[in-house]
């Protein structure tokens, strides 16, 4: 996998991620990517209901959230997390990226959208953008 300059929090600690996807394969893939960005995965969930409870326990800096999942879909889970934690930074990661879905996700509190299959360099830039001022300065482009 391509090498990336680490993206860190302002306090120098690794960015903490909650990875939500009903596919174990997809979660493993995303975990590999965020670890290559210098991040730390503090929680995983396979559906929206678990994601909401995991968010409260793990208090991640960023949530990577699938949309199409059993029990509760990602957009509804994102809305509930943002209602309880307005500071939550949620990036939707889904293969279903039509306009209405993206707009619905953004209107309900998601900060960004990345379409699957995920390109590491795209996710890297989105994470830096979503972290904004909370990211330590100096995280460069893919090396």
């Amino acid at each position: 996998m391509e090498q990336f300059a680490p993206v860190q929090r302002k306090d120098g600690q690794p960015v903490r991620y909650l990875v939500v996807d009903d596919s174990v394969f997809a979660r493993k893939n995303l975990i590999r990517m965020v670890e290559s960005f210098g991040g730390k995965v503090v929680g995983e969930a396979g559906d929206g209901v678990t994601a909401i409870s995991e968010y409260g326990k793990a208090e991640p800096d960023i949530v990577l959230m699938d949309i199409t999942m059993p029990q509760m879909e990602g957009i509804e889970a994102a809305e509930q997390i943002v209602r309880q934690h307005p500071e939550a930074r949620i990036v939707m990661v889904s293969s279903v990226g039509y306009q209405e879905n993206i707009v619905a996700a953004l209107q309900r509190g998601a900060r960004h959208f990345v379409q699957k299959p995920v390109k590491p360099e795209v996710l890297y830039e989105v994470i830096k953008y979503v972290l904004g001022d909370e990211a330590a300065k100096g995280a460069g482009a893919g090396a």
Binding site: A26, T68, S95, V96, G97, Y98, Q99, N101, Q115, K116
Partner: peptide, 13 residues
């Protein structure tokens, strides 16, 4: 999921 999701995206748009 990814193949069908991408096709559905195009069809929805």
């Amino acid at each position: 999921n990814q193949v069908i999701g991408n096709a559905v995206t195009t069809l929805n748009d």
